[in-house]
Design a protein around this nucleic acid. Structure first.
Lengths: 139, 139
DNA sequence: ACAATTTACTTGCGCACTCAAGCATCAATC
DNA sequence: GATTGATGCTTGAGTGCGCAAGTAAATTGT
């Protein structure tokens, strides 16, 4: 098994893992009424200073396009998980801010997601999990 | 950083990596006229005994639903990358077989994909790449 | 001061996929 | 050997995105 095949295996193996992972995550998170993508948004917002980010920052943080973010946020605003806020310095950017409701839903969903994620990586020892996260972060 | 957060990081980091990876792979493979999903199909078929698989086997191998496979294969049959073949023992299954054309396109695309994959994992040493593939395969 | 370019979004369109329902075939039970 | 249930696949409807084009605001160049 040479290096090239190893790299190819990595890509194809990831495809397989990922498709299953998202499906299960969405399913588990559905009890909170949110999708995995929406969880990702809540997560990034909760990490952000003052829990607010521009839409572009959000898009980069979760790996979606700007238009994807626009459409994802529409229903989230409607059910008050996040709210719009405009930037005083630059009228182009419309900031997204986590509401208290959104914060609460996030904390609930975080429990579920942590449980799921922990279960997902459970075939590995903690030492191996650490190594895996470390390796991925270098890519 | 406890174990739970590590697991969560793994999931979210994967989301980010994966979204970028597929986009780049699709872009590079477009010179061969195929998508990354289609490459996955050609790859699995080329590995299979007699280069033929049922649609269900294919779906499981690449992580798509049965209906996804049906729709992906339609254009691939039209341009003769694969062909239908029926199973003598069971009239329900319709096998998918790689054509010589498909084989050729696959080999060309494999070069591209190997190059891309190799580049993608290049921030890691060969030793680390090996470890990464090994860890993923246990999940 | 005013055009030209760049940036932050939004919108129209379309593709890729899923889920649920349907059809055909096989297998098991009576 | 008919019925019941499981399996392989296709189809209809709907969702979740991306891409390209459009708008509005900021920045840059002159």
């Amino acid at each position: 098994m040479d290096n090239q095949n190893q790299a190819l295996d990595f890509i194809l193996q990831s495809a397989l893992l990922w498709s299953g992972m998202v499906k299960k995550a969405d399913q588990q998170l559905s009890v909170h009424g949110i999708s995995f993508s929406e969880f990702g948004i809540l997560h990034q917002l909760s990490l952000a200073p003052q829990q607010r980010l521009s839409r572009i920052e959000l898009a980069n943080a979760v790996g979606l396009s700007a238009s994807g973010i626009t459409r994802l946020l529409q229903p989230m605003e409607k059910i008050q998980l996040v709210e719009k806020e405009q930037n005083a310095r630059d009228a182009r950017v419309s900031l997204v801010k986590l509401t208290p409701t959104g914060q609460q839903i996030y904390l609930d969903a975080l429990q579920t997601c942590n449980f799921f994620a922990t279960q997902f990586v459970s075939p590995l020892t903690p030492r191996q999990q650490e190594m895996l996260v470390d390796l991925l972060q270098r890519l």
